[in-house]
């Protein structure tokens, strides 16, 4: 992992500016946060390269799950339009601490997965929930993509500090009948 990667992984993308709204410099933001209004809840956000920082003030919520935001210093439509498609980042450590047995997706992504006997299984590719409980999607060391339910039984240990997740190998679901 290079230095820039390290830097990147410490931030999470909380939203993207989708366009200008009205003449006074309001912008529409599509939030990637669980609760749309939380885009501004974690303090100032910065652009992708970190060069600009914005203070957001949530004005309103549009019907399509977007929020209207006033950004300090952006006072006319031209300036607002200039921000279109800017990704908004927040340092990871500004997010409130997760509760026991709760993990931010951002923290879980990329962790290496090992079996209980120390055998390397792969890395966390994504975390999904399709209504049947949370699950980890694994970039399988054997190739392909495997999945595992994110339950105490199947994933007994999550060690974010050490960058690894310990799983019960027998619970891994691989495509193919033998799995």
């Amino acid at each position: 992992m290079s230095d820039t990667d390290q830097e990147q992984s410490k931030r999470v993308c909380v939203g993207v500016v989708t366009g200008a709204h009205g003449l006074k410099g309001l912008v529409r933001v599509r939030p990637y946060t669980d609760v749309p209004e939380d885009v501004g809840a974690y303090g100032p956000v910065e652009s992708e390269d970190g060069s600009r920082s914005f203070e957001l003030e949530i004005r309103n919520r549009t019907g399509k799950g977007q929020v209207l935001v006033y950004i300090k210093g952006i006072d006319d439509r031209t300036a607002a339009e200039g921000l279109k498609s800017t990704l908004l980042f927040v340092p990871r450590d500004r997010l409130p601490a997760a509760e026991d047995d709760e993990f931010y997706h951002a923290d879980l992504l990329g962790l290496s997965i090992v079996g209980q006997d120390g055998e390397t299984v792969g890395t966390v590719r994504s975390v999904e929930n399709f209504g049947g409980g949370d699950m980890l999607e694994i970039d399988d060391a054997r190739g392909g993509v495997a999945t595992i339910p994110f339950t105490l039984a199947a994933v007994p240990e999550v060690d974010i500090g050490a960058g690894r997740v310990v799983v019960d190998v027998s619970q891994i679901l691989r495509a193919g009948k033998d799995g």
Partner: peptide
Amino acid sequence: GEFSPTRSYFGHQADRKARRG
């Protein structure tokens, strides 16, 4: 089948949490 979507993109979220149930 309703709980196992056959198409992939379902958006992304920043501060979403996963609960280990």
